[in-house]
Simulated scan of single mutants.
Amino acid sequence: MRRTTTPPTADSRSLIPMDAAEPFTDVHRIVVLRAGGLGDLLFTVPALHALHESYPQASIEILGAPVAALLEGRLPFPVTTRRLPPVAGVTAPPDRPTDVSDFVATITQQPIDLAVQLHGGGRFSNPFLLSLGARHTVGCATDDADALERTLPYRFYQHEVARDLEVVGLAGALTMMREPRLAPLDEDLARADQALGITAEGHSPLVVLHPGATDPRRRWPVGNFAQLASALAREGAQVAVIGDRSEQELAEAVVREAEARGGSAGRSPVVSLAGRLGLGGLTGLLARADLVVANDSGPRHLADALGTATCSVYWCGNVITAGPQTRLRHRIRIAWVTSCPVCGVDVTQVGWTAQRCPHDPSFVASVGVDAVLEDARSLLGSGVAH
Rank of each mutant, 00 (worst) to 15 (best):
P358H: 05
E72T: 12
S362R: 05
A58Q: 01
H330I: 00
L306N: 09
G323H: 09
V31R: 15
T175A: 09
T81D: 15
P299L: 10
S246Y: 05
A171W: 01
E61N: 05
T44W: 01
R267S: 13
E201T: 15
G307D: 10
G64K: 08
L42Q: 04
A171P: 00
P205V: 00
D244Q: 01
T4L: 15
A305N: 10
T9D: 06
V168P: 04
V255D: 09
D146P: 15
S297L: 15
T175D: 08
I30M: 04
E187Y: 03
G275R: 06
H359I: 10
L71K: 06
F363A: 05
V319N: 01
R327D: 15
R261F: 10
Q117G: 14
T108E: 01
E235S: 12
A21F: 00
R377I: 00
Y154K: 01
G39K: 01
Q117P: 08
S312H: 05
T4C: 14
E53I: 04
A253C: 06
N224A: 13
P180E: 02
L273R: 03
E257A: 11
G307A: 08
I320Q: 08
A229I: 09
R13T: 06
I320H: 07
G298T: 03
D188I: 05
V138N: 07
T353K: 11
A65W: 00
Q158M: 09
A145F: 06
H359L: 10
R377Q: 06
T44M: 06
G172S: 03
A162P: 04
V254P: 04
Y157T: 01
V239Y: 08
A303D: 02
W315C: 14
L152N: 03
R2K: 13
V364M: 00
I60A: 12
G263E: 04
H386W: 14
L373C: 02
L70K: 06
A229M: 02
H210I: 03
A274I: 01
T98E: 13
V239R: 07
S54E: 11
R150Q: 11
I198T: 14
A365G: 07
G262L: 07
Y154I: 04
H49Q: 07
V161A: 08
T137E: 04
V347Q: 13
V293D: 08
V167P: 07
A58W: 05
V67A: 02
V255N: 07
G223D: 13
D296E: 15
Y55P: 05
I332V: 13
L185S: 13
P8F: 00
D215A: 08
G368W: 00
P184V: 08
R74A: 09
L152F: 07
C343K: 04
V271P: 00
T326K: 08
S204W: 12
P17N: 12
S362L: 06
L84T: 09
R123F: 03
L373A: 15
F124S: 00
A92W: 07
G37M: 02
D296W: 05
D99G: 01
I16R: 11
T142G: 01
